[in-house]
Design a protein around this nucleic acid. Structure first.
Lengths: 240, 240
DNA sequence: GTTAACAGGTCAACGGTGTTGTCATAAGGT
DNA sequence: ACCTTATGACAACACCGTTGACCTGTTAAC
């Protein structure tokens, strides 16, 4: 057997499938993203993807070694899209707020890719662009190098971590997710005040707040703390 | 068919399996945790768990409706273990700092389980205890209800999210993790200053910072922003 | 043009997964 | 000692990712 996966630029023969589709890395990624968007996370399997493409599932292994590789390719594409949709204004805090929310939304739109890629450093094109861009925003804002890196690190990891968390949650089967909402309304909201005073006192707030992601709140806290440090000129406290 | 799952206290007949094991919810959870820790996340399947228990896989459905239910039970057990090791002092910021680090460490100590359970609401005993405790710390500190809930939510989710993120990373095969460190030293540190000025300027900081978790930094930022709001009396700004 | 090589699509199979309907049996209340 | 029924066992279903072998249309070279 010759090498199964051939790098994109080495591909010469564009042979159509039985159903007349000419495969390509791009087409596969596009179709995968469409599948996820239209029919949910669970709709993405090699077999379904093959079917949606009009090709035998095993054909995909001519383009990607494993499903993992496909996921990383999708993730990189997502980073690129998010970055392209973002227009910095020069106000560092507003720009990072906007970028954070955009990246988070992008992750939520493609949960499986988000979960898989959150804890990996790919070193691919779009990822490098993102690092350079975010570091630029922070350094231009006046953060000294060590502090800029520290805040960059916290910002990115917080974003990835929440992206994966909320994605994993949203990827739950519909029934399971509704059951979770019920837990807050039924179990927690009914705890008696004498045994659980704090929950009882805030039950209404809890039932409401827990329905949404806390990422915006967490991001706001992070940026506001960073702003405070910048104002206090405490930025260069450490050499990290 | 009678109801498949019977609540624990309604169980009367302790019938041993063919291999002589007497099943119970506790034994199943214990065995599942052991399986995850010893052989990795992928080792946990209904079939493997059944085998490890010395029982037919389908027997487990007498104790848990789905694998989901099993995951929730595992998650709750982990929460309980962490909470029991924590002693509050009355200083809300120090207490939450300590609790955050403990929970994060607990997640890292059981990486595979942490990844599985991070995004679930269990509604079980230990989780309820944790909610009540953390809300109590915040309300006693003087945060009004809406703000207490908002900060509770951000605190907990950030903790779970980073726990899962760092766990997933630490659970990578050794070779893969070293390869990631190399990306920062080789790929990023070698980008030319004219195309990637910000990365080039901070390469040394990056290579150092990216080797560690940014959770302590993120937690510190969160708590410091919360403290600022408490001081400014801005706590009741929103009704949530 | 003809031809020969081989990239790339297809097929069938392997071993895994969660889950369920049905059956058998031993435990425990009476 | 009996009868009910809880609960474990079995077999089957429909999926999953992945791979080795096969076949054929495309393409480059002549």
């Amino acid at each position: 057997m010759s090498e199964r996966v051939v790098p994109p630029d080495a591909r010469r023969r564009r042979r159509p499938t039985k159903q007349g589709v000419v495969l390509s890395e791009e087409l596969i990624i596009e179709t995968a993203l469409r599948l996820i968007e239209e029919h949910g996370t669970d709709a993405l399997s090699v077999r379904r993807l093959g079917h949606a493409l009009g090709a035998d599932p095993s054909s995909l292994y001519r383009y990607f070694r494993h499903t993992d590789d496909l996921m990383l390719a999708i993730a990189d594409e997502l980073i690129g899209r998010t970055l392209r949709s973002w227009r910095p204004t020069g106000d560092w805090r507003a720009d990072l707020w906007d970028l954070g929310l955009r990246m988070h939304a992008g992750a939520l739109a493609h949960p499986r890719a988000a979960v898989l890629s959150a804890y990996r450093v790919t070193g691919r094109l779009h990822e490098i662009q993102a690092v350079e861009t975010i570091l630029g925003v922070l350094r231009d804002a006046g953060f000294p190098d060590g502090e800029a890196v520290r805040i960059y690190h916290a910002f990115v990891d917080q974003n990835l971590a929440f992206g994966a968390l909320d994605s994993a949650n949203s990827a739950l089967p519909r029934a399971a997710r509704e059951a979770e909402a019920d837990v807050w309304r039924d179990t927690y909201a009914r705890l008696p005040a004498d045994t659980h005073p704090h929950i009882a006192a805030t039950a209404r707030h809890l039932a409401h707040s827990m329905r949404h992601s806390s990422y915006p709140a967490a991001l706001d806290l992070l940026l506001s703390a960073a702003a405070a440090r910048l104002e206090n000129g405490r930025g260069d406290a450490g050499a990290d």
